[in-house]
């Protein structure tokens, strides 16, 4: 058998943050080609703060323009940028004390090479042609490379700043999940029966969460493709980032016969919402073998997407509540 590929996924959160009076003014100025610091006692802090960092006391808003030139206080060289970095070619991160400021700004310097970087060097702000009301609207270059350009002011005050958090993950599929996945491809439900509690888990986590003992292949059991709707919800999709559904849809927990844990998050496609109910007996209809693929499998929650085409009513009488009340999810 060929090895199943590792599980890979990208975690993304699209953050939209309100800026408040000080960061808002900073980002508004940045969009318009100016850099602001805040006066705090006898210091000028950049990026500006609403409070005194030593005492946490609020400070009266007193913003002053700093830069666009500055001096590098410390730096490091990014030889291999990653996709979220501000440049896709090697560049420097630096602590930059802008002219007129007393504290350092953490930012990126686009330099020709590591040899072009040194502590104490002069740098100058450059503005991106396309600005997004974010700190990435600006970057720095060695003073000799700087070009003065006209930055046309944008409209209104920046009150929101957006940033997409994005991280990549990769993990080998664990042995018990691999057997579960291979079972699905073969049209079977493979769970595990705890040698201690006798409970049957599907998909198993590889251990009995009640007795807290590891389980092995010897504990694998096959379950029939029929079960009871233990609970469900009709979701009216809000079009958040990543939502693929557009119409109300059902997500059901299905307790397979012989299992002590329902299969969660099952997609119900062919049953009218007003006929769907807890206690209903359903059978899984697998896709044709050649079309089965493992999607969104992970080592923690598990998925049956890409294998089960749909669930259909068996026509049997509904199960009484006592059969599934312990398994609501």
């Amino acid at each position: 058998m060929s090895e199943l590929p590792p599980i890979t996924y990208t975690l993304e959160y699209p953050y939209t943050r309100t800026t408040g009076p000080v960061v808002g003014a900073f980002l508004t100025a940045l969009r318009d080609g100016r850099i602001l610091g805040s006066r705090c006692g006898d210091r000028v802090i950049c990026p500006p703060l609403e409070f005194d960092p030593d005492t946490a006391e609020p400070v009266a808003q007193d913003l002053v323009e700093v830069g666009p030139g500055g001096t590098v206080k410390s730096w490091t060289w990014i030889a291999e940028p990653t996709r979220k970095h501000p440049f896709q070619q090697p560049f420097a991160f630096a602590l930059i004390v802008l002219d007129g400021a007393d504290t350092a700004l953490s930012h990126a310097v686009k330099a020709r090479g590591i040899d072009a970087m040194s502590t104490g060097m002069r740098v100058r702000a450059q503005w991106r042609e396309e600005r997004a009301s974010a700190v990435t609207d600006v970057y720095f270059v060695p003073e000799a490379d700087a070009v003065d350009t006209y930055v046309p002011p944008g409209e209104g005050e920046v009150e929101l700043t957006e940033h997409l958090i994005s991280l990549d993950f990769k993990e080998a599929i664990h042995p018990f999940r691999e057997r579960f996945a291979r079972g699905l491809i073969a049209g079977k439900f493979i769970g595990q029966k705890s040698p201690v509690s006798g409970k049957v888990y599907i998909p198993s986590k590889g251990y009995d969460p009640l007795a807290r003992v590891a389980m092995t292949e010897a504990d694998d059991v096959e379950l029939p493709p029929v079960g009871i709707v233990a609970g469900y919800t009709v979701i009216t999709p809000v079009q958040y980032y990543g939502q693929k559904e557009t119409e109300p849809y059902i997500r059901a927990s299905i307790l397979l016969d012989g299992a002590d844990q329902p299969l969660g998050q099952q997609d119900i496609k062919n049953i009218p919402h007003d006929e769907f109910r807890s206690g209903m007996r359903l059978r899984a209809v697998f896709r044709p073998e050649s079309e089965r693929k493992i999607v969104e499998m992970d080592n923690r929650w598990g998925s049956t997407g890409g294998v089960i085409d749909h669930w259909e009513p068996t026509g049997e009488p509904d199960a009484p509540p006592e059969k599934y009340l312990e398994h609501l999810f």
């Binding site: 953050y15 900073f26 970095h85 953490s106 974010a134 990435t136």
Partner: peptide
């Protein structure tokens, strides 16, 4: 790091 002024640069 600071989500407004630093994270968008992704200093590791």
């Amino acid at each position: 790091l600071d989500p407004y002024c630093v994270v968008p640069l992704w200093p590791d």
